[in-house]
Design a protein around this nucleic acid. Structure first.
Lengths: 164, 164
DNA sequence: CAAACTGTTCAATCCTTATTGAACACGCCG
DNA sequence: CGGCGTGTTCAATAAGGATTGAACAGTTTG
């Protein structure tokens, strides 16, 4: 029975894939991000396909997706023909930012719909509006958080003297 | 060309479904929640199947899912044979709470994996750990927010004199 | 007790999205 | 120019979940 020993690296990459999937994204995107985090230096698409056993198409598509979401950046040193990608310092910051934006969008549409309820449905309008405001406030809150992180990245790092 | 006039109610319910789907949940769960928010009072499974044109199975399953997630509560007044559900005051509070819990779970697994990296991969370990800590801090932040909301629900309501 | 009613479970179906293989486009090199 | 290396696009396939219909279990009613 094949020992199926999984190294920390393999384990991390696998979990990154599952986690990303749990959050509604493509599994492979998470795996690529995990791979880049472990490696710590730029890696080419070819290296990804090799390391993760995925198709060229997936590597290309998902790497660009990560770049779009802001978790990863494309680098291309002179004299290097292949595209390479590397993980940003705080790849998950982008995820949180996107979350806030999504919530704000939800708040906007809900607010608009709420305003459409006629006086005869004042109760429903009230409840819908309240619902929308909740999302807006949460979006504001998340924005504060990401802004704080952006200006003081150490907040997100492990700190020895927890200043709680 | 059928006028396809959509009332605010229909529109709201539809958008709730799409929004929920966008967040990775079942569309019907969102629709049910939307329906209950608009109605403002308990509604039975039969009423849901009728109003939303969904199967009995979906109504049952998704209503219980919402209950489990804490967006909705089951009520059964005496002399009432059917189960009924009603939306809680701040249904989306549960969503945010769940988000925080999920992030904390992510943080835990990542931290554990990070600890498994040997000294020879100190760099990778550092990066993985940092990644985990980011999620943990974010989870803490979200917990603070939900706690604040729980003790002072008006925060989530529309306020006329924005105390920003 | 039998019939009617209600909620749950579960296997089958449907739908959406992720993933892939193959064709394509572009640039470089000989 | 003609071939090679590389990244992207796109139609087709695969995979994963949501949704449903039908069977089931439990309760109430007459």
């Amino acid at each position: 029975m094949s020992p199926r020993m999984t190294s920390p690296t393999e384990n991390f990459i696998e979990q990154m894939g599952l986690m990303t999937q749990a959050e509604g994204g493509p599994r492979i995107a998470g795996q690529i991000l995990g791979y880049l985090i472990v490696e710590g230096e730029p890696r080419t698409l070819a290296q990804m396909t090799e390391a993760l056993k995925i198709s060229k198409a997936s590597a290309s598509t998902n790497a660009r997706l990560l770049e779009l979401k802001g978790s990863v950046r494309r680098v291309s040193p002179m004299g290097q023909r292949q595209d390479a990608y590397e993980a940003l310092d705080f790849p998950n910051l982008a995820v949180i930012r996107a979350l806030g934006e999504r919530f704000r969008a939800h708040a906007d549409t809900m607010t608009e719909i709420g305003a459409g309820f006629p006086e005869s449905h004042a109760g429903a309008r009230e409840r819908v509006t309240r619902f929308a405001e909740f999302y807006r406030k949460t979006a504001d809150f998340i924005d504060d958080w990401t802004a704080k992180l952006a200006e003081d990245p150490d907040l997100a790092a492990t700190d020895r003297d927890d200043p709680r």
